[in-house]
Simulated assay, not measured.
Amino acid sequence: MIIDAHQHLWTADYAWLADPSLTPVRRDYTLNDLRNQMSVAGVDRTVLVEAGLGSSAETTSFLALASAAPEIAGVVGWASLTSPSLASDLDRHRAGAGGELLVGVRDQVQGEDDTFLDRPDVRDGLAVVAAAGLVNELVVRAAQLPSVVRAVESLPSSTFVLDHLGKPPIASGDMAPWLSVMESLAALPNVVAKVSGLVTEASWTSWKPADIAPYVQAAVSLFSPRRLMWGSDWPVVELASTYSQVKDLITDVLGGPDPDVFAGTAVRTYQLEIM
């Protein structure tokens, strides 16, 4: 069993795709496209993650889609952590089609300032997600990682998932500051990290496996495989690589398809029901 713990679907009209650098991925990506990629790469199940639309309607549609797609084992939906209706929004999603597949919530924290996660209203939102029994998923920039440490410390009863290893500065090669804060984060038992999105933090056109390997190896040393999960970050990955290439890259760095990184951690963290 191979589980891709992080992939997206979107349509060409998503606002953030207007950035000229994203032209190669500015098109509709459908369930059939996903199935083709999974088949080639030998992937059995995926976790579908919100794709930056910033709308409850996206979460509703993703859950309905997943309910009819056995390949999608869970959905990390979007919700605003500062919304006063957060609890009722989550209840509504869970009562709708595919609601049982909602496994986590992600806001677009990477678009906020470096101390967004320190705000009392944001912390309240994280607590609402945790009280609902859902994972708090965090997509952040490396500069926001100190605030991630503080947020994780403040909610020991919540499970946090850090996307893309916190977006380390692979292109610049300035590993030391990232490594220092990741050491602090890994010391907290209620956080799991995704080995995903790394090739797009390197040079899109000239990255090499040797650029990525030190960050993966550091993550294994800090978190252990039982607190790491692999994600393709498809279709974003197509800016720098392919679905199969990034799976093979992480497999090679790990010395094989580690059963925790490639399935077990995702099943435990998201409480996936795999048939």
Rank of each mutant, 00 (worst) to 15 (best):
L198F: 06
A142S: 15
D124N: 14
A176M: 08
V192A: 04
L222E: 06
V139G: 12
L126I: 15
E153H: 12
S203A: 15
L165W: 05
L185S: 07
S147E: 11
P156M: 10
A151F: 05
S224P: 12
R150P: 03
K247Q: 14
H164T: 09
A131H: 11
D174N: 14
F223A: 09
S244D: 11
T159P: 02
Y243S: 04
A218R: 14
R119L: 14
L155V: 09
W230M: 09
L198V: 03
P189I: 11
L162E: 04
Q217H: 03
P120D: 10
L249M: 09
P169H: 01
V148G: 09
L179W: 06
L138M: 14
S244N: 02
R227Q: 04
V129N: 09
L134W: 06
Q217T: 13
P177Y: 07
V237H: 00
A193L: 03
V236G: 07
V161C: 02
E183I: 12
D233C: 01
P146A: 08
L145P: 05
K194P: 04
V129C: 07
W207Y: 04
R119N: 07
D258Y: 02
A218W: 00
V195A: 11
G197H: 05
T159D: 13
F223H: 06
A171E: 12
A193K: 02
S221V: 04
P169T: 02
L126R: 09
T242A: 02
E137G: 01
A218V: 02
L165E: 07
D258G: 05
S184L: 15
L145I: 12
H164I: 02
W234R: 04
V199D: 00
V181E: 06
L179M: 10
V149L: 11
A130I: 14
P259V: 05
E201A: 04
V246C: 05
L126T: 10
V253Q: 03
V195C: 13
V129R: 04
A213K: 01
L155Y: 05
F116R: 12
A151E: 10
F160I: 13
T159H: 09
W178K: 05
M229S: 07
V199W: 00
D211F: 02
S147R: 11
V195M: 14
V199H: 00
I170N: 01
S221P: 00
G255Q: 01
A171L: 12
D211M: 01
P189N: 09
A151Y: 10
L155E: 06
S180Y: 02
D248L: 13
S206V: 11
A240S: 15
G125I: 12
I212E: 02
V139L: 15
L138G: 05
W178G: 07
P169I: 01
S196C: 13
L162W: 05
A131E: 15
V140D: 06
K194D: 07
L117R: 10
P156G: 08
R226I: 03
N136R: 10
Q144C: 09
L138H: 07
V161L: 13
L155H: 15
W234C: 01
E201W: 00
L222K: 03
I212V: 15
G173I: 08
D211Q: 03
T205S: 14
